[in-house]
């Protein structure tokens, strides 16, 4: 339909709404003083990202995003907050000790991302103002992971294994200290 002389599709409206919600929640994560509320904002933000995946016709990525990031990671963060009782009792203050340095670091990161995004091939889909027509199914994800990208995929799992073993080692040392 036409609004203010611009041609706007329903898809664009939905995209802007979900993206706006995601950005708002992300701002909330940084600015909300209460740490549990900030964690909840993080949950909403991650749901927003899942919504964006769904809008881009990647349903598998969207549900996996919800399962891993919203269901597991956010819960883990909240559990960690529970364990650190001190943080929970005192109103958590998200201080910025050096605003100039923080702004500079964020600016560099933003520029880096902007350059990467602008130079990528997949920017074409956005230019055409339509969702990707081909449904990115489970099988194409599996083929991509296990054929051209099998090395980085396996490398990621080795890193995760190292983290797991590290966690076990740290936990073991703690029990040894108690006894």
């Amino acid at each position: 339909m036409h609004i203010f002389g611009l041609f706007i599709t329903g898809y664009q409206v939905a995209f802007v709404a979900v993206a706006g919600l995601t950005v708002l929640a992300a701002v909330g994560v940084v600015l909300v003083p209460n740490i549990l509320r900030a964690a909840l904002c993080l949950g909403v933000m991650l749901m927003g990202v899942a919504g964006l995946y769904a809008l881009m016709n990647a349903p598998f990525l969207a549900v996996v995003q919800v399962m891993i990031y919203v269901g597991a990671i956010t819960t883990m963060i909240i559990l960690a907050v529970f364990l650190s009782n001190r943080v929970m009792k005192i109103g958590f203050f998200q201080a910025v000790y050096n605003p100039l340095l923080a702004a500079a670091a964020a600016g560099v990161m933003f520029l880096f991302l902007l350059v990467t995004v602008a130079n990528s091939v997949w920017v074409q889909g956005i230019v055409e103002k339509t969702p990707a027509t081909k449904d990115v199914g489970v099988q194409s994800v599996a083929t991509a992971l296990l054929q051209p990208y099998v090395f980085p995929f396996e490398l990621a799992s080795v890193v995760l294994l190292a983290v797991l073993i590290g966690a076990v080692v740290i936990a073991k040392e703690d029990t040894a200290d108690e006894s």
Binding site: G43, P59, F60, V63, V64, V66, M67, V70, G71, A72, T75, D135, G137, V138
Partner: peptide, 14 residues
Amino acid sequence: LNVGIIYLSAISSI
């Protein structure tokens, strides 16, 4: 949905 079963477990984990 063609990812029905993952959708089920993902949504219930919220």
